[in-house]
Each structure stands twice: as C-alpha cells, then as structure tokens.
C-alpha cells in the first residue's frame, strides 16, 4: 500500500538591513571575526536592545507579499537556552503574538501541478553568533558578527506532500523574497536556512510522528535529505517499529540523515517580558510601505 509524505518547512531569512536587529552594528556578511560587535549584541551586563525599524518594515513587507494578516500589536519574547554562540542565554524572538499569521504561497508541484501552501506564521527574531569547531584544534571559536542580525522565520503549514514539492516551495519563496528586496536568500552565506519537518502516513490517516531535519545547505540537498528521511521512516514503520520524534542532521558528504543532540530549551519563552517592549506596529505606515513595492 502507498505511503503519503507530509512536509512542513521553517525558513529563516536574514533581512537586507544595514544594521542589526537591536543595535547599530553592521549586519554585513564576511567581515573579520568579531569586528561588528558592541555591548548589545555581545550581551554585556546592562546593555539593552532597541528594535531596528527598517527590519520591522521589511518583515511587514514580506508578510503582505505572502498574504498574511499583520497584527497591529506584536510582542517580542525570550527563548532561553544555553549555547556558546548565544550571548545573552536567550534569543529574542516572537512566541504568543507574532508579527503576522495566516498567509499563503502559490507553488507549482512537479507531481500535481499548481497548489497553495498555507503560511502559518511569520515572525521577527535575532540571529545567534556562529560557532566554528574546526578553526582552533581542540577548541570551539565563536564569531559574534552574526549575533543580532535580523531574521524572519516563515513557518509553512504541513501542506507539502513530497521532497520535490518542498524544493518547489523553497524556490517560489526565494523568488518572492528576492523580488520584494527583503532578503538576498543566499544559502551559501546562510541568509536563508531551512529546517524541515517530515512524517509519513497511510493516505487518509492522521499525521504520523515527525522528525526535524536541520543543517541543510542547498535546495537540492533539502530534497535529498527529505528523500532519505522519508525512506528511513517508511523502513522503520514497515519493520514494525515506531518513528521517534527527534532532531536530525543532514550529512551532505554521504547524503544521510542522522539523529543529533538538540539544544535543550531550559525554560519556556518569557512572553512580552519588558526589558523589552511590546512593539506597536503602525499599520497604515507599513501597509503603504508594503504596497509601494507592488504599485510603484
């Protein structure tokens, strides 16, 4: 009997701003390590974040392009976990009240022609620094130039039915985001990153247990990784075992997907914790800004 594959994608996109999300440091890619840093993006004691208006505008523009409802009230929250490249011990992200929800993207499937992928939510957050495990023998080096670079996370509904459809969705999404000049979507430089959730089921049955595949660095590798994971999950179930919900990593050299130790989230998001701010979005202003792209 046939299997049906269900895929949902979380896409992180760096925004085309000159400066970072919460400080005035340059957001440029490729500068010498730890040269674009300040007390805010290094998480020094006493430093406070101030949101970048340009980043909010770009995020709203992306939300409109994807047909989302942009909320007039949007709240930043903290996602707490320990990792050496996360200087504050938490990431500033959005949780309960994201910037935008409920959009859609038209995609042409190689298997079933044109169809619509739902966009569950689109929110703003900050990037982490970058860890290098191969620069200094026996040590990990961290570059904080990326720390605080503005990101939007675009979460699709689980509307994709094959690895090839996942690739088609990513291609369409990239076209839109580049056209509206929100991001250059350069996967090699990490300005577009994909986490893919995949599960399999018999047609008509409820959703199966999903795994999350991370660390995939090109659209073709997303397709390869998902094809591998799809085959692995089917084999597991056909062997009478159960798929374990966990995080997997893709090895481009072998084309395999393997379990990885995920970052432990030590505590839930602190929603709207001021020290911080809730961000009132001037709806009209941003609507005009978003429309300009299409009508001017």
């Amino acid at each position: 009997m046939a299997w049906e594959t269900v895929v949902g994608l979380e896409v992180h996109v760096q925004l085309l701003t000159r400066s970072k999300m919460f400080c005035g440091c340059s957001a440029a890619y490729g500068d010498p390590p730890n040269t674009n840093v300040c007390p805010v993006c290094l998480g020094l004691p006493g430093a406070l974040p101030v949101p970048n208006e340009r980043a909010v505008r770009l995020a709203v523009r992306a939300a409109f392009a994807l047909g989302c409802a942009v909320h007039s009230r949007s709240i930043f929250a903290r996602k707490n976990y320990f990792y050496p490249d996360l200087p504050k011990g938490y990431q500033i992200s959005q949780f309960e009240e994201p910037l935008a929800t409920g959009g859609r993207l038209e995609v042409v499937s190689p298997e079933r022609g044109p169809f619509t992928v739902g966009i569950k939510r689109l929110h703003l957050e900050e990037d982490s620094g970058k860890s290098f495990h191969d620069r200094v023998p026996g040590m990990t080096a961290v570059d904080f130039n990326r720390s605080g670079v503005p990101l939007i996370e675009i979460v699709s509904e689980p509307d994709l039915r094959s690895p090839a459809e996942a690739r088609a969705y990513l291609t369409a999404l990239k076209q839109v985001l580049r056209w509206i000049e929100v991001s250059d979507c350069n996967m090699e430089e990490g300005s577009l990153r994909v986490d893919a959730n995949l599960s399999v089921r018999r047609p008509g049955e409820p959703l199966g247990t999903r795994t999350e595949v991370k660390n995939v660095n090109s659209f073709s590798n997303v397709e390869r990784a998902l094809a591998f994971e799809q085959g692995r999950q089917i084999a597991v179930i056909e062997a009478g075992e159960q798929v374990e919900q966990r995080t997997m990593t893709f090895d481009a050299a072998t084309g395999e997907v393997r379990p990885t130790r995920s970052k432990e989230i030590f505590s839930l998001a602190l929603s709207g914790l001021a020290g911080f701010f809730s961000l009132p979005v001037d709806f009209i202003q941003y609507f005009l800004d978003a429309c300009q792209v299409f009508f001017s």
């Binding site: 290094l42 004691p45 505590s267």
Partner: peptide, 16 residues
C-alpha cells in the same frame, strides 16, 4: 526569580 533566571543566563564563562 523567573525573570532573573533568564537575565542571569549570560554569565556562562564564555565571554567575560
């Protein structure tokens, strides 16, 4: 304490 647990996470020995 909830807010403190988040605010004091940055003292991790990595940077200073």
């Amino acid at each position: 304490p909830a807010e403190a647990s988040s605010n004091l996470a940055r003292y991790d020995g990595v940077r200073y």
